[in-house]
Design a protein around this nucleic acid. Structure first.
Lengths: 405, 405
DNA sequence: CCTATATTGTCCCGGATAAAGACAAAAGGC
DNA sequence: GCCTTTTGTCTTTATCCGGGACAATATAGG
């Protein structure tokens, strides 16, 4: 039951019904392709006549195309409909401190070329220039991908959803930076920019099929920082300043270790990669002492390898992180009660080692038996969730529900 | 940007546009009454002809009525439209351990009779009988209120939103209890039942005017327990099992005092009335020792009175609670980024004493300057937020946006 | 009192849409 | 060759928004 926003509503006009039904049809084709007009009509519970009209419009707009004719046990054979994803591509960009990843994908998120990387320039203007150059080259090198419909950029920081400015990206050291318009000018393409946690959550919702596409979800990315994106009723939870979802800075213990945000005892201070490595090297989490050269050169992947090799201290460090991960997940579960949690980040490579600890910790604090059992899905690094998120930034709006009432 | 729920969508039919526009008109009348057809047309940016048709339907359904003619500097005088709230009433019920409150109100939440109370029976079946009897008497005693359209019940516990069963109400000691159907049978009226935090949030959103009706909000009720309700995009955040919003059991410190939920260090364990009183009486929060007879007879109102009288220990206890209240609010602000926070409960009687402490603590952990400044509104006990919430349970659905796509 | 002007509310017609059903097209079985 | 089944298109009808005309009502000014 939704209240109508009386400061910002949209009257239904003559075209509204058509718009709604066309978008439903488009989405059913997206999730069920290949599909015939007759099947569409059955799913939508309308007459085939209506579907014919809707599909004709979608064909004319080149949003779908007619493919092969299918098989039927009797009667006329159906002509299959598909989303027009040929000749329509998206460039996805994932900017992080360590490196920047790029990918060309189609509108449904399927990669059209191997993932590439480039160095991340710390100076925003130089970064935009380098990025634009790289994107143009990428597009030229892949003419088979077809016309690029836009660039999606995932950023480890807060983005103003109205102006698209980067308000603050702590790890990059960017504050109040505008890159979307500069990038759009340099490439001549529309640019969508969003916080990476929110982008990941968006992709999980839009690219899921069947059961997984249902219900609310939270995406938790465990990396240098903790990125969280929340989808409720098919929408990103943004809040007033588009900074909702910062569960990384909800405390586990208000007098816990110091966090990069200035507060103490944030979840992030317990489970970031730095926190896990610090535990292994015996660095004082609470005071945040100097980082040794040895630790500097050591990655979370190295630590996981040592844990698999039987290194007791590595195992202990991982298990401690796992426990705190589970305790924090319980906070999300109690606050949002999502249907599913997605976990990404380097640490999922050790999921088989930590899963039981995570679940136990979560069960400790989850309020109800149902809550304790909340499904957890691991998103492997090889799935490039942030790049998929960046694709979704461009692709999802084309399939979104029309705003009405 | 919303994703269409493909398992549960609604096609637009011939009547859909009309349904949408009629509901927009109804809501504009609700928030702007008295209002003329011509003004409605201007607000909706449609021709007056369309409004005439919509309003005629609303008149026929007895949802609005034509009142006096207004004044105009020139030209034909407008006939004002009003929501039909005469002859349509709601019975609101707020069940709590200590007592049960009742009120008769009109559809817009305006009280039609003084609030009444009755004892709360601990046995559900007996409670339903007593409640039904009391409600029938209340309706008989107030024939001027008009036909009762339903009973709204606010409960300090978790309610299954599908079946309307009370899953667990810890303070009442109820577990898996069904009272809505029994109450409906006994009274012959439709019954809506909901968690009191969610009901309060619903009322704040639906009964607000102007600026206050905009944006997302969270309602925090500080009492025996901590009830939280969250409204995002005009909808209650329910989650999968209708238990979302339990920020009361998000920790401030995982090794903090024991909480009634079984976990330790929950926000509730720091700021519930019991926690504040325990601080005053020097009772060990961490171990949760026995409650002295003196403390048993002492209420939070008594403590506030002593603080106002200059009792240093009372002031300290209140300030400690205020600080923890602010720290927990920061969690909500970081997680949801609402436009406004509403605070209810007995402690708001001391708001002038604790406000600065609350805001300082909130600022300590809020992530951005904007976040720190999140508006806080105090809801006095005399406004009976839970009763208003119970009214909203019955009234709001009549004004809700039609579910489409 | 009459006229011009302004405002409100109603009515009618045209174009767009969904609903229902008829019809053509296509394929297999007897 | 005819019947049945299935797909997809086309036509008709009722509903609804969009636009404009028009009546009703009130004020200002001569």
């Amino acid at each position: 039951m939704r209240k109508i926003d009386l400061e910002n509503f949209r009257i239904a006009t003559r075209g509204t019904s058509r718009e709604i039904n066309r978008q439903i049809a488009l989405n059913l084709i997206r999730t069920h392709q290949p599909i015939s007009r007759a099947d569409l009509a059955r799913m939508m519970k309308v007459r085939r006549g209506v579907v014919t009209v809707l599909v004709n419009e979608l064909l004319e707009e080149r949003k779908v195309f007619e493919g092969t004719t299918g098989e039927a046990p009797r009667g006329r054979k159906p002509t299959f409909l598909y989303i027009e994803s040929r000749n329509r591509s998206v460039v996805a960009v994932d900017i992080r401190v360590s490196r920047t990843w790029l990918q060309v994908a189609d509108l449904l998120g399927r990669p059209l070329a191997p993932t590439e990387t480039m160095a991340t320039e710390r100076e925003p203007k130089r970064m935009v220039q380098a990025l634009a150059k790289r994107i143009m080259r990428l597009i030229e090198e892949h003419p088979e991908a077809g016309a690029c419909e836009g660039i999606g950029v995932a950023i480890p920081g807060m983005v103003d959803s109205r102006t698209n400015r980067i308000i603050h990206a702590p790890t990059l050291g960017w504050r109040d930076v505008e890159i979307d318009q500069a990038l759009a000018r340099a490439t001549g393409l529309p640019v969508q920019i969003e916080n990476s946690g929110k982008a990941c959550a968006l992709a999980q919702m839009w690219m899921a099929r069947g059961e997984e596409a249902q219900g609310d979800l939270a995406f938790v990315s465990v990396s240098d920082g903790i990125g969280v994106g929340i989808m409720i009723r098919g929408e990103i939870v943004r809040g007033r300043h588009n900074i909702a979802g910062e569960f990384g800075h909800v405390p586990l213990s208000i007098d816990g270790p110091r966090c990069s945000c200035g507060a103490t005892g944030c979840w992030e201070a317990y489970i970031s990669n730095l926190a896990t490595l610090s535990r292994y090297f015996g660095r004082d989490l609470r005071e945040g002492g100097p980082i040794s050269a040895e630790m500097q050169a050591f990655t979370i992947e190295d630590l996981i390898a040592r844990a698999r090799g039987g290194d007791g201290r590595a195992i202990a460090a991982l298990q401690a992180t796992a426990r705190y991960l589970g305790l924090g997940l319980a906070s999300i579960v109690n606050a949002i009660d999502p249907s599913r949690l997605y976990i990404g980040g380097e640490i999922v490579a050790a999921w088989d080692l930590i899963e039981s600890t995570v679940r136990e910790a979560m069960a400790e604090r989850a309020l109800t038996p149902h809550n304790m059992m909340t499904e957890i899905r691991v998103v492997a690094l090889s799935e490039y969730p942030r790049l998929r998120g960046a694709v979704a930034l461009v692709a999802a709006p084309q399939f979104a529900a029309p705003a009405v009432a």
